[in-house]
Amino acid sequence: MSAKAFRAPLTLAAATVIALTGAAAFTASVLPPTPAAARAPAQAVTVHISNFTFNAPTVTIGLGTTVTWVNDDDIPHTVVATDRSFKSKPLDTGDRFSFTFTKPGEVAYFCSLHPHMTGKVVVRAT
């Protein structure tokens, strides 16, 4: 049986970037825009690693969202960005790794021990 069959249905909702509050932001239009990560309330998404699979393999998030990976397997895994923008230490059973995404775009990642395990984070610009 393929490992794919065991992936959880991909139902993760994209994290919502909450609209600005506070009048100061509207009156300061001549200033450079405040970085979105600073504006948006902290968002969090968890990706479980089980059966040698990232569940879910693709997550779509807003700027400033922190993604946490949790290893549920009895074998260590890593979470390594293909462009090396982030790299976890080996995660033993129950270990976690978090990274906060502050740039829009797609980041592909994989497990450097089991490179057939791949995933992707899509960071929306808004």
Partner: peptide, 9 residues
């Protein structure tokens, strides 16, 4: 190979 959800122990 192929007899389990994953190659884990």
């Amino acid at each position: 190979p192929g007899t389990a959800p994953s190659p884990g122990p």
